[in-house]
């Protein structure tokens, strides 16, 4: 494997966003790119990352390899990179280590780190293609704000999508709270758009603790996409450049 990222910052932000949810992960490398799928310890949330080969320049992977990496170790090394550094990941065919090289485009500094790999026997789940009842696209910062506000009142949030809009509501010991967003197009600031695509109304309840955790990815993309269907996990997607993505799935709470 040899994969060169124009900005080390991308990988730094991705790892930073998921490291509190999952600890040890396999980075599955093949000629289409670098993928990661991992569940949190409670098997309630799942992270699915895809960094497509096109996100790297150049990208070369001659043989499929799984790099088992402890994310807190990876984060320690990624913190040694400047945000603007060029990052090159390298690994042999049957690797014991993954090699990370950081190059400054402005100076002649070149730093090199090896991280010891681990054998991770990871459960892999098949995620079926789903036609979601509701797909909501909104500013990532707005979603983060809603989750942070509501967790002050309750452990859970009900997300209800209708043709009127999407309503996030919660109830707790001190009282209730709700935030409703309607479809909204801002021609001058399209990054503030809220788009609700609905085939049928849907209402589901989720744990806010996990949603707040997912929102650590807000720095990766201006927009977040929420996909909901009755009685299936919520999909929270942050789209990255070159069709790469960071997705989170969250199992719903059921019954009341």
């Amino acid at each position: 494997l040899e994969a060169r990222l124009e900005q080390a910052n991308l990988l730094k932000k991705v790892v930073d966003a998921i490291k509190d949810l999952v600890q040890d992960c396999n980075f599955d490398c093949n000629d289409s790119g670098i993928a990661l799928q991992a569940m949190d310890n409670s098997h309630v949330a799942l992270v699915s990352m895809m960094l497509k080969a096109e996100s790297f320049s150049p990208f070369r992977c001659d043989r499929n390899i799984a790099l088992g990496i402890n994310l807190s170790s990876l984060m320690k090394v990624l913190r040694c990179a400047q945000n603007e550094d060029i990052l090159t990941l390298k690994a042999d065919d049957a690797p014991d280590v993954v090699n990370l090289v950081f190059e400054s485009s402005e100076s002649d500094r070149l730093s090199e780190y090896d991280i010891k790999l681990m054998d991770i026997d990871q459960e892999h789940l098949g995620i079926p293609e789903t036609e979601y009842s509701a797909t909501i696209s909104m500013p990532a910062a707005e979603f983060q704000r809603i989750c942070r506000d509501l967790i002050a009142l309750s452990e859970s949030v009900a997300i209800e999508a209708t043709k009127e809009g999407v309503k996030f509501s919660c109830s707790g010991d001190i009282g209730n709270g709700a935030v409703t967003l309607r479809s909204h197009t801002n021609v001058e600031k399209p990054e503030l758009n809220v788009d609700i695509a609905l085939s049928e109304p849907v209402a589901l309840t989720f744990s806010l603790k996990y949603l707040v955790n997912f929102c650590k990815a807000s720095g990766l993309s201006g927009t977040v996409k929420l996909c909901l269907s009755s009685e299936v996990p919520l999909l929270v997607e942050y789209t990255l450049a070159s069709n790469s993505y960071l997705r989170f799935y969250l199992a719903p709470k059921i019954g009341d």
């Binding site: 569940m39 098997h43 995620i127 859970s156 744990s207 199992a251």
Partner: peptide, 14 residues
């Protein structure tokens, strides 16, 4: 109150 479900109830291991 509502019960938390787990992912295996929806996604099958491959």
């Amino acid at each position: 109150s509502a019960q938390q479900t787990r992912l295996e109830g929806f996604f099958k291991p491959t």
